[in-house]
Simulated assay, not measured.
Amino acid sequence: MSILQQLGHLRIPLEDVKQATNNFSAENFIGYGGYGLVYRGELLHSDGLTMIAAKRVDPRFNHAEYHFLSEIEVLLSYKHANIVSLIGFCDEYDEKILVQGLVTHGSLDQYLGSTNLTWVKRLQICLGAARGLSYLHNGWEGQSVVHGVVKSRSILLDNTWQPKIGGLGLCMIGRVRPNIFVKDGFHTPGYVDPTYLKNGVITTESDVYSFGVVLFEVLCGREAFDRDMNKPFLGPLARTHYEKGTLSQIVDPFLTKQMNHESLKDFSAIAYQCLEKLGTARPTMIEIVQKLEKILRLQQDFERALAFQQVS
């Protein structure tokens, strides 16, 4: 019996998904998933009217059906406040559709240069995302998940700006600290682990490298790779500036005015460590969570002290 046959309680009729998304109209289109197009909608569900994101499998994508089944498996087994939630799926005729809760503020990449996200809020988002990845890495019943395509676009933000790890369709499930040979699907420019490019092996350390790039994106207010602007990859650029002591040249000036010096120093240090060329030299996601918790406390204490001085 296939996994879909075992999950009859999660099955959503195709007609209901069509009605929810206005028959997959252009107005309801919100982006590209790992293996298909994604549409927003309003679905009448057991919990009432629910905002959804419906990811429609496109068979032209390599191994699309496999990734669809893999994402269902992961979302069923790995439930966490910082991971997107599964509502159900559709499997009728030639249609396969994954239905998730809609994360209303979109993805982190949309806000990297925004003045609406303060330094504290950015730290909170990074910490939440790190907690979600740490949960995936550190296993459930002896297994762990390698996300494989960690980037600011796969970190989604709900209506309270809580981050949710999405884009799990290309993930790999294996033993804790797996070594998995991967042939394709993990070539996101600007985020990919150099070790993977060299030997084709992707591990939890590869996710850590990609997350380090995301940390620098948050710090510098720009994406890792911008084809339109023809800028260099942010990861190697940030490493060079960090080593030369000139990181201030690429940090977002809007954030510099808000930062406690210690929080900036510690944040840039952990981001740099994530980009170590040797995977085993990189911190684990557990260690990153601990560091970010400390950095957030430093910044919050700084801001409370500053506010007290202004009142006094």
Rank of each mutant, 00 (worst) to 15 (best):
M1T: 13
Q5W: 15
Q6D: 13
Q6R: 13
R11W: 07
I12P: 00
E15H: 14
D16E: 15
Q19G: 12
A20H: 09
N22Q: 11
E27P: 04
Y32K: 05
G33R: 11
G33F: 07
Y35D: 04
Y35R: 11
L37D: 10
Y39Q: 02
R40G: 05
R40Q: 14
L44W: 09
H45D: 12
L49E: 14
R56W: 06
V57H: 02
V57P: 00
D58K: 09
P59V: 06
N62L: 09
E65W: 11
H67T: 01
F68D: 03
L69G: 03
S70H: 14
E73D: 08
H80C: 05
N82Q: 04
N82V: 02
I83H: 04
V84K: 08
S85C: 05
I87Q: 08
C90D: 08
D91F: 15
Y93H: 07
D94C: 12
G101C: 14
G106A: 02
S107Y: 00
L108G: 00
D109M: 08
D109S: 14
G113K: 04
T118M: 09
K121S: 04
G128R: 02
A129N: 02
G132Q: 08
N138C: 03
N138W: 01
W140Q: 07
G142S: 09
V146Q: 10
S152A: 03
R153N: 01
R153H: 03
S154T: 01
L157Y: 01
P163H: 07
G169Q: 06
C171H: 10
P178I: 15
D184Y: 14
H187L: 09
P189C: 09
D193L: 05
P194M: 10
P194C: 10
T195P: 01
G200L: 15
V201S: 10
V201T: 15
V201H: 15
I202P: 00
S206I: 08
Y209T: 06
Y209W: 12
V214A: 03
V214T: 07
F216E: 03
F216H: 07
G221N: 06
D226M: 07
D228R: 13
N230H: 15
P232K: 09
L234W: 03
T240L: 13
E243R: 14
G245E: 09
D252Q: 14
P253S: 06
S263R: 12
L264S: 07
L264V: 05
K265H: 11
D266M: 12
D266C: 09
D266H: 15
S268N: 08
A269Q: 12
A271S: 13
Q273M: 10
C274Q: 08
L278Q: 13
L278H: 10
P283C: 12
L292S: 05
L292T: 02
E293V: 05
I295M: 07
R297Q: 15
R297N: 09
L306P: 03
F308V: 09
F308I: 07
V311I: 12
